[in-house]
């Protein structure tokens, strides 16, 4: 049974169809990657799933419940969580407080403190816990935001370009983290450009182009499609 079921969803901005008649089902426990060239509609589709945008047409089901008109906070309370494309942390607040604001949704007291410490160590931010989030390096802000998303213990984790600004080593660690979360049952949808990273984590890949689904399948199926290479990867890009 799909955890998230996107049915014939479109989103227009004036005359521009950013997302057009997209149908996509993602099963519980899947790591699903969305790829496509800039302007393909990947981030718009993410914002439609989390509720930042309402679809111009179509329906979105989460765990079989119609969430098409629900506000983002209600979707998060249902079990979604997102890391946005640009780092979106509370820059004037310390790192530990950023995590607490997320953690306090489900935890309190010693339980919250222990989970905060676990996340700080997992994210390699323990020595920076008193720093203002805005003073962290770009990659560390990405980690912090991933930590805030994880603090909600989501069933569906949406990661929009999670490794942007990270070193190859940090990128690899992020991939291992995602796989480990997935082994524990978390469904993950990732928008990414880094093909090595996608190769590391993807179980299924959907290619978006001009707001529509262009190809869908395993990574091998997708990259062996010559049309995909043409529109997205380029002849010189080896995948």
């Amino acid at each position: 049974m799909p955890l998230i079921d996107i049915k014939d969803v479109s989103r227009r901005f004036g005359g521009l169809a950013a997302v057009s008649h997209v149908n996509l089902s993602i099963d519980q426990g899947e790591i699903h990657c969305l790829i496509g060239p800039n302007g393909a509609g990947k981030s718009t589709l993410f914002k439609l799933i989390i509720g930042v945008y309402e679809p111009s047409a179509g329906t979105i089901l989460f765990d079989n419940a119609d969430i098409t008109r629900e506000r983002p906070y209600a979707r998060v309370q249902r079990g979604m969580s997102i890391k946005m494309q640009a780092p979106s942390v509370f820059k004037e607040l310390p790192v530990w407080q950023n995590l607490d604001i997320a953690l306090q949704q489900q935890r309190s007291g010693d339980d919250l403190v222990m989970e905060r410490q676990r996340l700080l160590e997992l994210l390699d931010l323990a020595v920076h816990d008193d720093k203002l989030a805005g003073a962290l390096a770009h990659g560390q802000q990405q980690w912090l935001e991933i930590g805030m998303a994880l603090a909600l213990r989501p069933r569906l984790l949406l990661l929009d370009e999670p490794t942007a600004g990270m070193s190859p080593e940090e990128t690899h660690r992020t991939g291992e983290l995602i796989k480990s979360l997935n082994r524990d049952g978390m469904t993950v949808i990732v928008v990414e450009h880094d093909m090595a990273f996608i190769r590391q984590i993807a179980q299924r890949v959907t290619v978006l182009h001009l707001g529509q689904i262009f190809a869908d399948g395993t990574l091998e199926q997708v990259v062996s499609d010559p049309r995909v290479e043409e529109i997205y990867l380029g002849k010189a890009h080896h995948v």
Binding site: Y73, I82, S88, V89, K91, I101, Q104, Q105, S108, L152
Partner: peptide
Amino acid sequence: SRIGNVIVAIREDPQRAEMLGYDV
């Protein structure tokens, strides 16, 4: 308090606060 945490979070970034499940 926990409410105060949310109040300042909204001041910093209302969209992020909503993405953490708070009805801003």
